[in-house]
């Protein structure tokens, strides 16, 4: 499926490009209020229309992409950065007490969906984008820890790991030198999937007011504002939602495409 890889990469780079571009240029400013131009449908001057303050939706979407991508990306980094070493360690000490603690800890975190963590954090520290990052990031830790541990456990059974042990290499060194490179594909694919889930989670959190706070634009926040206006101006609700769907779809297609492209079994079949 080269198609999904191409489509996914195109969609993803479109949004990442728009987010980067928004640092230097947007069609309109997003801070001004222009009541005269409020709730315009899409036309030539405002390609995606305007919201209830008369702000240009295209500009809002571009700046909002920044928030979504930043939150989701940092959260994935957090999950990978902690989850992968934990998974590697647990696998290297499989069956030991450390493994047990890591795995039980994982199970425990799985009982706290991102939203619940966000609720707890917000209740204590107040809302904000950082909370969203922490909430989504914490939930990503067990995802990567489990994936890494599972993959590493099956690799530890392989004879080439045994050969490395016979060659006197320590478990830590084997983990870094032999295990991790052989898990890289798996982690990249899961990374894109978690990235897309992060975009969805961030949208949900900012929709209920637990994510980025005004005046920072975010897609979820835009939808929350649009909710009361759905009946009179559907485009203010439809457009940010479409942005989320396309971004997530792009990342998922990219993940699928990468999995097929990186899978050595599939690669071996094509000369």
């Amino acid at each position: 499926m080269r198609l999904s890889l191409a489509l996914g990469a195109t969609l993803t780079s479109l949004f990442v490009g728009a987010a980067l571009l928004s640092f230097i240029w947007t069609p309109y400013g997003i801070t001004g209020v222009n009541i005269a131009a409020r709730l315009h449908s899409p036309d030539m001057s405002n390609l995606l229309g305007t919201d209830h303050f008369g702000r240009d939706l295209l500009s809002m979407i571009m700046v909002g992409a920044r928030t979504s991508i930043a939150v989701a990306l940092i959260a994935v980094g957090l999950g990978m950065g902690l989850g992968v070493p934990l998974g590697l360690t647990a696998a290297a000490r499989a069956g030991g007490w450390l493994d047990e603690i890591v795995m039980r800890g994982n199970d425990l975190i799985f009982a706290f969906p991102s939203l619940v963590i966000a609720i707890l954090i917000t209740a204590v520290f107040g809302p904000g984008a950082v909370n969203a990052i922490i909430a989504i990031g914490i939930f990503n830790i067990p995802v990567f820890a489990r994936l890494t541990r599972g993959g590493a456990l099956s690799l530890w059974q392989r004879d080439f790991i045994l050969a490395a042990r016979v060659a006197g290499k320590s478990a830590a060194r084997i983990s870094v030198e032999h295990i991790l490179p052989n898990l890289a594909n798996l982690l990249i694919v899961q990374g894109t999937i978690q990235f897309s889930l992060g975009i969805l989670a961030e949208a949900g959190l900012s929709y209920v007011g637990l994510g980025a706070q005004p005046p920072i634009p975010s897609w979820g926040r835009m939808l929350a504002d649009a909710q009361t206006m759905v009946a009179i101006a559907p485009h203010v609700a439809v457009i940010p939602g479409m942005a989320i769907v396309l971004m997530v779809l792009g990342l998922n297609l990219l993940g699928d495409g990468l999995r097929d492209a990186l899978d050595p079994r599939l690669r071996g079949r094509k000369p």
């Binding site: 392989r158 004879d159 080439f160 050969a163 052989n182 050595p264």
Partner: peptide, 8 residues
Amino acid sequence: PYSSFNPR
């Protein structure tokens, strides 16, 4: 012979 070597 197939699992004895790191393919990378």
